[in-house]
């Protein structure tokens, strides 16, 4: 969703006339060719990439003054908690809301480069389809299997240490940065075949998702719930999922996930814990068979 707003604050005189050059990799629809387009917006202090995109959308003209369709992108909260606005900014995956223009220009003074995430199918321009990411949460049953939502008294007692361990994992906003930066997570973009029904296609797509790497975010969620006193009641089911095709074994320990995570979630710790749990589980299963 977009709702551009021009800033009320006016730029100081020193920045008058200064322009920010932006290069955007656009794509009109899935399956179409992508193309670069240049834009320029007047500089203002304290801008972030979202406000740059808002001005571009409002202007709907390229740098050479040609009228163009407004650039499309995802965003919502603008304070880095909703996980919507992930994109490749100057080649690196990050949230557009917390990407401050001043810092980007320090990084790369000539221009800001925006591209859609490369591991998910492009819907349009900077909007990608992250359904596979959410499917990952289903695969590892990332939930507490409660009986129902009626009153059964409080939840289990939890020590502050356990809470402090769990809380960071629980701040994962499903932005997909960890997946974008992961060299082991590769794009899955099935194309609907001629004559294929929507349901058949959705099923085939899901099958493909389910064979692909589940990703750091889902591994971490599995560990979050396997540590919860009630959540762990289906720990085996999660480990089963984590040791099936596309499971924890796909991790190559590049550790980019933890390096790019905007919430600094200890993803590699979760991965290693999942590795340990999978080891124990696999051995146990071998003997329990």
């Amino acid at each position: 969703m977009i709702a551009p707003n021009h800033a009320a604050d006016s730029a100081p005189a020193a920045d008058e006339g200064r322009e920010i050059r932006v290069r955007i990799l656009r794509q009109d629809a899935p399956g179409q060719e992508s193309y670069w387009e240049r834009h320029a917006v007047p500089y203002e202090p304290n801008m972030n990439v979202i406000s740059v995109l808002q001005r571009i959308a409002a202007g709907a003209r390229s740098a050479d003054g040609r009228p163009v369709a407004p650039v499309t992108w995802d965003c919502n909260c603008l304070e880095e908690v909703c996980g919507s606005c992930t994109m490749l900014i100057n080649g690196r995956t990050r949230m557009a809301c917390s990407a401050l223009v001043d810092r980007l220009l320090e990084e790369q003074p000539e221009e800001i480069e925006l591209r859609p995430m490369s591991k998910f199918p492009v819907v349009r321009d900077l909007v990608v389809d992250r359904r596979r990411l959410f499917r990952g949460l289903e695969r590892v049953k990332a939930w507490v299997p409660v009986d129902d939502s009626y009153d059964h008294g409080p939840g289990p007692r939890i020590s502050p240490e356990e809470q402090e361990d769990a809380y960071p994992l629980s701040t994962c906003m499903s932005c997909g940065c960890c997946l974008e930066a992961c060299p082991q997570y590769t794009k899955i973009e099935p194309v609907r075949r001629e004559g294929e029904t929507g349901e058949a296609f959705a099923e085939r797509r899901q099958g493909a998702f389910d064979r692909g790497f589940v990703g750091a975010h889902a591994v971490s969620q599995a560990m979050l719930f396997n540590a919860h006193p009630t959540g762990k009641m289906i720990a085996d089911e999660r480990l089963e999922a984590l040791t099936s095709a596309g499971g924890i074994q796909m991790c190559g320990n590049a550790q980019n996930c933890v390096a790019v995570c905007p919430k600094a979630i200890p993803l590699t710790r979760s991965i290693a814990r999942a590795g340990r749990a999978a080891t124990v589980w696999a051995i146990k299963r071998l003997f329990d068979r």
């Binding site: 507490v144 939840g155 939890i158 020590s159 809380y167 629980s170 919860h228 959540g231």
Partner: peptide, 9 residues
Amino acid sequence: DRLGVPFNR
């Protein structure tokens, strides 16, 4: 709490 919200302790 039962649903797993990590309330501070």
